[in-house]
Simulated scan of single mutants.
Amino acid sequence: MTPSPARPHTRASLAAQLRDLGVRPGGTVLVHASLRPLGFLCGGPEAVLLALRDVLGPAGTVVVPAHTPDNSDPAEWSNPPVPADWWPVIRDGMPGFDPAVTPSRFMGALAELVRTWPGALRSDHPYVSFAALGPAAAGIVADHGRADMLGEASPLARLYDLDADVLLLGVDHGSNTSLHLAEYRQPAPPRQRCGAAVLTADGGREWVWWDDVRLDEECFARLGADLEATGAVRLGPVGDGTGRLMRQRAAVDFAVEWLARPRGTEEA
């Protein structure tokens, strides 16, 4: 006999699960989500966003990554790489980033819904922007430094200042962007040249370069497993999937120490 499918999930049932998980009314939460593992959602990403806003209330703020990873130096692309003779074509032809219209890419349906929701604000970084919806949004996305893209001049640091939460829905810590802030807080992180297409003051576009920290999330799954072992992460059902909720400040502080250990001794 074919087993019955799981029940559909609604705005109300999702909100109940998020409350049980510990989402704080009036809080600020950075959400990374893959909706497929959550099962059948009545209303899709809209049901998830509305449920989050129901739990957070009018004083709460939702933040999502609105990154545009294809607006970056094609010489660094690896998934998939492109031929070297394409690089100048891409640098010359990539549309300049416009925070009002450039879609996020590979961030998921929930992130794109937040970006386009009435009243949402977006930071103006051409590669790793964030979108936010709620009373704290303006302070979070303002003055996103191009050459400090996920460091102290980024929305991640503003979230740290606010003692925000991180909510992972249907994804693990490999998608936990806040852990990159810990890379910036290492004594001498490796650096690289970065590039992206931006708009110019006269309405044109240009390719710009800057020096920044070389991001590396390869170890984030292991880092996250060690973080969960400390009890700092609450796990619970959201839809048919798993939600992970943590204080961003606690996760970043743990990651700063974890990354400082010699490789191979992280679990010591």
Rank of each mutant, 00 (worst) to 15 (best):
S4N: 04
P5E: 11
P8F: 06
R11M: 05
A12Q: 11
A12G: 15
A16S: 13
Q17M: 14
L18V: 13
L18A: 12
R19D: 05
R19H: 03
P25H: 13
V29W: 01
V31Q: 11
V31A: 05
V31H: 13
H32V: 13
H32I: 04
L35Y: 06
P37R: 14
L38W: 01
G39K: 04
F40P: 00
F40D: 09
F40A: 15
L41E: 05
L41N: 10
G44D: 10
P45A: 15
E46S: 15
A47L: 14
V48E: 02
L52V: 06
L52H: 07
D54A: 15
V55K: 01
G57I: 01
G60Q: 09
P65K: 00
P65T: 14
A66N: 06
T68H: 12
T68E: 06
D70P: 10
N71Y: 04
N71L: 14
W77I: 02
N79F: 09
N79G: 03
D85I: 05
W86K: 07
R91G: 04
R91H: 13
D92F: 00
G93L: 09
P95T: 11
F97H: 11
F97G: 07
A100H: 10
S104K: 04
S104L: 01
R105Y: 09
F106C: 15
M107N: 05
M107Y: 03
G108L: 02
R115M: 02
W117L: 11
P118V: 09
G119S: 12
R122H: 07
R122I: 03
Y127C: 01
Y127W: 14
V128I: 06
S129Q: 07
F130A: 05
F130H: 09
F130T: 00
A132C: 08
A132F: 02
L133Y: 03
G134T: 08
G134D: 03
P135E: 05
G139I: 01
I140Q: 01
I140E: 01
D143I: 11
H144K: 12
H144P: 02
G145C: 06
R146S: 04
D148K: 05
G151P: 05
P155E: 07
P155F: 12
D161V: 13
D163W: 11
A164G: 02
L167K: 02
L167D: 02
L168N: 08
S175P: 00
L179S: 02
H180T: 01
Q186W: 12
P187T: 09
Q192D: 01
A196H: 03
T200K: 08
T200A: 14
G203T: 12
G203V: 06
G204S: 08
E206N: 00
V208M: 14
W209Y: 14
D212T: 04
V213S: 08
V213T: 10
R214A: 15
R214C: 12
D216L: 02
E217N: 15
C219S: 15
L223D: 10
L223C: 13
G224P: 08
A225C: 11
L227C: 10
T230I: 10
T230C: 14
G231S: 02
A232K: 02
G239Q: 12
D240R: 06
D240Y: 07
G241M: 13
G241I: 13
T242D: 04
G243D: 05
M246K: 02
R247S: 12
V252D: 06
V252K: 07
A255K: 09
V256Q: 10
V256K: 06
E257W: 06
L259H: 03
G264H: 15
T265M: 15
E266R: 15
E267I: 05
